[in-house]
């Protein structure tokens, strides 16, 4: 049997390392200003946040449910959703963070990234 003292030390070490790592990782800046909306891992829409001129609502509907996405100049959020946990709504605005907005029940992800070559040409 391992002594309780050793377990306490090990568990505290894990807690401190995980907390420090999450502070580092969650404040990491995004690679770019292009918001990409994915459902089931497939890209459904791509918006350059710097080119959003006016507020716009965009609804993603699947047979699992719907998420109403609100676009504003420079930022994006899930305004409302009929998912059970509402984590995507509570995540709030996404403007410059690498950590994505996720709605696991609806398999929806909003992620910021850099421009692709295709965008550069189109722009």
């Amino acid at each position: 049997m391992v002594k309780t003292k050793i377990w306490v030390f090990l568990i505290l070490a894990i807690l401190v390392i995980a907390a420090a790592a999450s502070a580092l990782v969650l404040t990491r800046p995004a690679a770019g200003r292009v918001a990409r909306i994915y459902v089931d891992g497939e890209l459904v829409r791509e918006v350059d946040l710097d080119r959003v001129a006016a507020q716009e609502r965009y609804t993603v509907r699947t047979d699992r449910g719907e998420n109403v996405i609100l676009l504003e100049p420079g930022r994006i959020r899930v305004e409302s959703a009929d998912c059970p946990d509402q984590i995507c709504v509570k995540a709030g605005w996404l403007a410059d963070s690498a950590a994505p907005i996720v709605c696991l029940p609806h398999r929806l992800v909003i992620e910021l990234g850099g421009e692709t070559e295709l965008d550069a040409e189109a722009g």
Binding site: A18, S22, A99, V102, L108
Partner: peptide
């Protein structure tokens, strides 16, 4: 979700798990 960047949440999840 085919989204590898979800792992950015892993350290926070692990800290909460403790």
């Amino acid at each position: 979700t085919a989204t590898p960047s979800l792992v950015l949440y892993l350290p926070a999840m692990l800290a909460a798990s403790v």
